[in-house]
Amino acid sequence: MSDRLLEIEDLRTYFHTLEGTLPAVDGISLHVDRGETLCVVGESGCGKSVTALSIMRLVPMPPGRYVSGKINLAGRDLLRLSKEDMRRTRGREVAMIFQEPMVSLNPVHTVGRQIAEAIQLHNGVGAREAMKQAVDALRMVRVPDPHLRVREFPHQMSGGMRQRAMIAMALSCRPKLLIADEPTTALDVTVQAQILELIRSLKHEVGMAMMLITHDLGVVAEMAQRVVVMYAGKVVEEGPVDAIFGEPLHPYTRGLLRSIPRLDQPRGPLAVIRGTVPSPLRFPSGCRFHERDPDALEVCRQKAPPLIDRGGHKVACWRHTPDVQEVV
């Protein structure tokens, strides 16, 4: 049996709006192995969240539409599952946590009831047993006094506690894959550190794989085994975390790494990536990054570069494409 858990092939998720078609995810391929942590990095509008929602089949339709592609999870194409099968898959096979737990938790039910509901639905146990498991789930995420906390409503908890409750809910059915979309962005640094630490140890305890979506390269360096860098709906670079940070190939990845202020760096102007993130309504032609790349070649303006595998480190950039001369 291969250790490939999730394999996305040529996924295109578009949104049809009055202003035109938004190719939010435009032909991406990526995979997550069993037990692995893959970080997906990119800025707003790069398609990282839509990729996550596509895996969960939570893209609102309309206006969204899966134009093409496959999402194989443990051998089944999620895009071909019936609604009923997909409902059973969510939670048990793949679960997701979001940036703002206050939005994802129901304010009128206690935290315990919400966790127990998921357990009842997926594990087919009775209400009493489900509540007992909900207490265990909160204990697992190191919530103090879990038997009291199950009776609390989301607004009675702090941001860090709510995120723990969300994680408890997501992990209550022991999914094989956890998708975490900016799980610590809304939290303070000290609480962020606690939650990342928690996620990391739970990953070992449960033995699941994780797809962590973030824009914070500090979080990536800390959590990832492999990294996928997305820009404007496409994967521009992919590789082991040490290669991405040590020898970034794509000018966008290099720019990102250079532009963050570092603690060990003297004050002075920061390196910048010029221009702005393009709108999905008006993605540039050719390589979508070419307008912001001072060293863009003529071919960059005209043709989109393919994702080339250079020994496990993939990049979509004409300057790293061996036969670029022939193409030009």
Binding site: A193, G218, V219, E222
Partner: peptide, 21 residues
């Protein structure tokens, strides 16, 4: 100590502080 450092070689235990404000 809790600042995430963008360098995979500098991985460390950051959660020096327990609890919430």
């Amino acid at each position: 100590a809790a600042i995430p450092v963008p360098d995979p070689a500098a991985r460390k235990i950051r959660a020096a502080l327990q609890g919430d404000v």
